[in-house]
Amino acid sequence: MNSVQLFDIIFYVLAATVLASASIVVFSRNIVYAAFSLLFTLFGVAGLYVLLNADFLAITQLMVYVGGILVLILFGVMLTNKVVSVDIKTGTLQVVPAAILVVLTAGILCSIILATHWLGAGTTDFLVVKTTAPKIGEALITTHMLLFEVASVVLLVAIIGAAMIARREKTQ
């Protein structure tokens, strides 16, 4: 088995993992199962990043999404559901119109993707490259300097804003 065949097999395994666990996230009635299934979706997406030669992004995905956002979501689940009432199932609304809308969206997107003539016919050679982290670091302090600074201010504002909003106000 050469490396190209191995690439294909890994891609299909990861794609199946991502789509199956995302379906559980969307269709599960139990919000805790959905939150834990989101973990496998995020891991699978990180694997797809590795296949796309984005190793730094894959590690960032694991640290920010799995280590941060998912834990935050789990805290949200635990804090907003009454543990004593054990009712952590969630309902759905307007399923049939939403299903029609979503199937239409997916069909249109897929037909556009398949019909478009992509640059270089959408294929590429198997690349063995070193990590992209040095290139990203260089771009962050040269061509993307302004975005980098704006992102830091956005994060600061988000932290202060979240702390202010979630703070329990003292009565008297």
């Binding site: 690439f7 995302a22 379906s23 996230v25 969307v26 979503v102």
Partner: peptide
């Protein structure tokens, strides 16, 4: 050696993931 997995494969995975998120 060209890869069998093309750009369209990744885009379709992403389109289906987008549709699932939209449904949620």
């Amino acid at each position: 050696m060209a890869l069998h997995v093309s750009l369209q494969h990744f885009l379709i995975v992403s389109a289906v993931l987008f549709s699932l998120g939209l449904f949620a």
